[in-house]
Nucleic acid binder design. Structure first.
Lengths: 66, 66
DNA sequence: TATCAATGTCAAGTATGTTTCACTAAAAGA
DNA sequence: TCTTTTAGTGAAACATACTTGACATTGATA
């Protein structure tokens, strides 16, 4: 699965730490999700979508092999 | 978080076991997600959305307290 | 009633998400 | 260059997702 969290953050001009605060997770969690190291829970995906004002499917996308 | 997987299954007229096969998880996983016992990964949410032909946000929704 | 398909549930084990703390590296600004 | 902010990374601990296997319950149908 891939994501464009970095782009969405850039659009809203917020840091990883700020996003982490907004959705109530640690900064490392944002960092590792953003760099594709692991797949977040659906609750986190929905929260990010809410913060960015975009549907989940515009932020996260399945890849070959998922 | 709540979900309407049961409704979506009804619309497509498929069983928990069939859905499980389609997204490659165990039948129990579908059962427990459907009954809200735990929150699935974003990959599973995207796969279900794909199966049902609906965006993730139409199947899963945040609740107070999430 | 007897049977079968579908669903619910339990327990134990494995895999993976998430946290905290700490430190390094890179980027941006004065 | 020096400083500060932001991002990347590692390890250990803990929480939760997911699996398998087995069995109980429900609902429909013959």
């Amino acid at each position: 699965m891939k994501n464009n969290i970095r782009v969405q953050r850039a659009i809203k001009n917020i840091t990883q730490a700020e996003l982490a605060d907004l959705i109530q997770v640690s900064r490392q969690t944002i960092n590792t999700i953003e760099s594709g190291k692991y797949v977040p829970s659906t609750v986190l995906a929905l929260k990010m979508a809410k913060v960015f004002g975009k549907p989940v499917d515009e932020i996260f996308e399945l890849e070959e092999g998922d």
